[in-house]
């Protein structure tokens, strides 16, 4: 249990998707004009990460990794399908996003209309694929750890996008040099937020 909490907190603050690895920057920059929409996108991100990371964990450990197929027949003990990782992960993510979209549309039309356009966007959000690839690289011991990591990175990304949206709403009233307005200042603020988040580094739980 402690291990899970530690992974969760690490992935929110220390290994934050946006500030430490710059994942999901495109939608982070494009959809952070108002707090409302960024909450929607952030929630969709958490949702999809929590679903896809564990599924890709199972895929990795029971199909793709070296020797993972041995449950099927001892003949496959040497099989190594890891070169298929990218294409399998992205297929799962695209399929899951589509599925999640359909489920939400069926059961909660209000949530669907508020997430609406963001869900399909999520499929090509690098934070989602990045989550799965980091999960593979860090070799989590079991599916619970992978889920904790997925949830943590989702929450971290949510925090980042809501934070920057709030700052951007305020900065509209400031006198920023004209060429720096919009994109430029957003980058620099994100950098400063990243420096602030670096102060979490070295925290051990």
């Amino acid at each position: 249990m402690e291990e899970l909490v530690s992974i969760f907190v690490r992935s929110i603050f220390i290994d934050n998707m946006v500030f430490a690895y710059f994942l999901g920057m495109c939608s982070y920059l494009a959809v952070s004009r108002t707090v409302g929409t960024s909450i929607g996108l952030g929630a969709a991100g958490i949702f999809v990460l929590v679903i896809t990371v564990p599924i890709n964990y199972l895929l990795e450990n029971f199909i793709l990794a070296k020797g993972a197929l041995s449950w099927l027949s001892p003949r496959f003990a040497e099989a190594d399908l890891s070169f298929l990782t990218f294409i399998m992960f992205i297929a799962i993510i695209a399929a899951m996003v589509q599925l999640v979209e359909m489920i939400i549309e069926k059961f909660s039309p209000t949530l669907y209309s508020s997430l609406g356009i963001f869900l399909p966007l999520i499929a090509v959000n690098c934070a989602i694929l990045g989550g799965s690839l980091f999960m593979q690289e860090r070799n989590y011991a079991n599916i619970a750890e992978a889920t904790a990591f997925g949830l943590g990175s989702g929450v971290g990304w949510f925090l980042a996008i809501v934070g920057i949206a709030a700052i951007r709403e305020k900065i509209r009233y400031s006198n920023v040099p004209a060429p720096l307005r919009g994109l430029g200042i957003t980058f620099i603020i994100t950098g400063l937020m990243g420096i602030a988040f670096m102060s979490f580094m070295g925290i051990e739980l």
């Binding site: 500030f19 060429p179 430029g184 620099i188 420096i195």
Partner: peptide
């Protein structure tokens, strides 16, 4: 460190937009 990449890009954008109004 990672944050400086963001600030560097921010400055490149600044210069680029300063040149191309």
């Amino acid at each position: 460190l990672p944050p400086m990449a963001l600030i560097t890009v921010g400055i490149i954008i600044w210069v680029h937009r300063y040149k191309d109004r």
